[in-house]
């Protein structure tokens, strides 16, 4: 997910603009949390926008997303469960 950024709504102007037309976001911003799932993805919750390197919002159909960190997903930046197939370990 190298070039993609997870931006906190409250901190980013571009994100605020993006949020205006976003059906998934409610009126009040919820704090963003990122859970580093052991041997799995990064689970991102709260009000955030996911941008590509060009600043455009990436296609997203759900509020909470799982971001690939094993590198094997075919749906990057999203997780597709491939970490289980390749035996990804988050701890050395």
């Amino acid at each position: 997910m190298g070039v993609d950024r997870v931006a906190d709504q409250q901190d980013t102007e571009g994100a605020q603009e993006a949020r205006a037309g976003h059906p998934l976001n409610s009126g009040s911003a919820a704090p963003v949390s990122v859970v580093a799932c052991p041997d799995g993805p990064l689970l991102v919750r709260g009000d955030f926008t996911l941008l590509g390197a060009d600043g455009e919002e990436l296609p997203r159909t759900r509020r909470t997303v799982a971001l690939c960190r094993c590198g094997a997903s075919v749906l990057k930046p999203y997780c597709d469960g491939s970490h289980k197939l390749i035996g990804f370990r988050s701890e050395p």
Binding site: L43, A66, L75, C79, D80
Partner: peptide, 10 residues
């Protein structure tokens, strides 16, 4: 594929 990769963690 995408939804349940999220759901299984939650």
């Amino acid at each position: 594929v995408e939804a349940d990769a999220v759901h299984e963690q939650i």
